[in-house]
Amino acid sequence: MSEKTVHVDEHRDDEASKLGMWLFIFTELLLFGGLFLVYSVFRVQYHEAFHQSSLELSVTLGALNTVILLISSMTIAMALTAMQKNDQKRALIFIGITLFCAALFLFNKYFEWGAKFHHGLYPGSELMALLDRGHLLYFSLYFFMTGLHALHIVIGMTLLIVCYFQVKNKKINNKDYVLLENGALYWHLVDLIWIFLFPLMYLIS
């Protein structure tokens, strides 16, 4: 056993893994950054239309999703704390709660998008083609940005499910938890982007 630990140590550099994850987060930030740039350009040009279109969205639903994501962000941070305290049981519970919140978020999103689709409002639909430029751009951005964000939620969930099982079979443990740390970092990124998406999409006056 001791021999094995030594062997693992030799090829392990947690600092490097974490730095790698941060760099990856930078690329994600700039990926969304491109979209925020497009958003700002069009919002300045079609301010009035953006305002009117945003009234179509439910602030309640958006706020609910914000709260859900914030809570999930805290619980995944707690999962890391639990792991550092060598509390495997709590770590599993916290990851579980996070995954539940993520699923809830997606459920709400499905509900929200579903209502839009029901009204015939989706990319390529006849109704979209009838809209004027500002409205069309707003909804194009809405679907593209929230869609890409939802895709990141799914990726984050996959990562956390992997973490869950690794914690369960003690691959992630008190001494080696960098994978959980990186999973958590990714999850916070998803939260971070939503923090900006929410006011920009739902709260335009």
Binding site: D14, E15, L80, T81, Q84
Partner: peptide, 14 residues
């Protein structure tokens, strides 16, 4: 262990 340098944040703070 030198490898785990991450600071532990208490539940209360979170």
């Amino acid at each position: 262990m030198a490898n785990n340098t991450t600071h532990t944040i208490e539940y209360k703070t979170l």
